[in-house]
Design a protein around this nucleic acid. Structure first.
Lengths: 200, 200
DNA sequence: GAATGCTTTTGACGTAGAACAAAAAGGGAT
DNA sequence: ATCCCTTTTTGTTCTACGTCAAAAGCATTC
């Protein structure tokens, strides 16, 4: 499923998000916006399958996705959730254009804008302000989120990590199954069920 | 301790490292090199203390450092080691210029080049190619390393993580104490000692 | 509303690694 | 060599969480 909407309607949402990262001159902004596409995808759709290079950077407007690895025993292990207004990509695969080790799957029907790797690279070369914009994006999106996550994994136990994701996404339990959350927390669903029941 | 060496001597090492990230036009390169400083610090020196904003990006030439948090109980917990030719900074603190949550301490006498945050920002605004250079730096240094680390923490047990750091830094056991490595692996030194002895 | 298939909960038991304690093994200095 | 101080190893006990198994809850569909 893929729906295009009018350029005007599209611009409003996306423009705000882009300008909130780093203000671009009007002329650069126009050029940039022209390279984004509006898309709607159904529940369970794969934005990215492991083994393929990640060719897009997505700006999700509404929806929910999970990132996951498949381990040697074939078990899927969630590494991340993003709900609603978030920037999505497999950073490692995207920046190197190498096969991704993880997959990105929708947990709900979702709407988003996307830009292709090649278009992004061309814009970086063409517009100095866009390069500065992208630096801000990488710094704020990739880096800060990810470093937080390391500290969590290293210092918090299962219960604390559960509380933390609940405070980040208070309604996550209504949108993501217990099994998926347990996988993200790297505990079994039985253990998460007991944490939830207050037995741990 | 702080030693300045001649501009010529300095340039050679640093220039290679910089150009290996992304090739800069000669004129931009000169401007950039002029903003780096050569430094030597003694063992146990703190490049960064938690609570202070991280004002520098360091290019270590030789030496060894640990990154660590201090938890609520006052226990120091290592999050990372860098040995020899590595780029060092507390990314989160550096990009936001906010107080750092972690500290960076030398484990050996070390030599490095550094550039200040303000100088870096000015160069990014001034030179489009330097902005492209910095994007490469962030993508390769910050992002790839960090994402690997998450996968390790999430999917590998203590023994596997130990083997992995050994394969990254084969001689790490000669340069970093067992206690420091155990803290990085998030296990006790007793457990690491047993892993080393093959009893686990 | 019975049947079918997911998701979540509960129970019993096993285990990796923590915590605590104490012994052993290395270095330097004198 | 001897003393002192740090680092590493060994032994014992304890606990959070995993594993396996089964039951309960909740939707869909016929």
């Amino acid at each position: 499923m893929l729906v295009r909407i009018s350029t005007n309607e599209m611009k409003e949402n996306l423009e705000d998000i882009i300008q909130s990262i780093y203000l671009l001159p009007q002329q650069v902004l126009e050029d940039v916006l022209g390279h984004f596409q509006y898309l709607e995808y159904p529940k369970n759709y794969f934005l990215l399958k492991s083994g393929k290079p990640c060719k897009h950077l997505w700006f999700m407007i509404t929806g929910a996705v999970r990132y996951f690895y498949t381990n040697d025993q074939g078990k899927e292990m969630n590494t991340w959730f993003s709900l609603d207004e978030q920037i999505l990509t497999d950073t490692t695969s995207f920046v190197k254009q190498e096969p991704a080790q993880e997959s990105i799957q929708l947990l709900e029907e979702s709407e988003m804008y996307s830009i292709e790797y090649a278009a992004l690279q061309a814009l970086l070369q063409k517009h100095h302000p866009f390069a500065l914009w992208y630096i801000k994006l990488v710094e704020s999106h990739y880096v800060s989120q990810i470093e937080d996550r390391i500290a969590d994994l290293q210092f918090l136990d299962a219960k604390e990590r559960y509380q933390k994701i609940l405070s980040k996404y208070p309604n996550i339990t209504n949108r993501v199954s217990l099994g998926n959350i347990a996988s993200y927390l790297n505990i079994t669903q039985e253990t998460l069920s007991r944490i939830r029941a207050g037995k741990l």
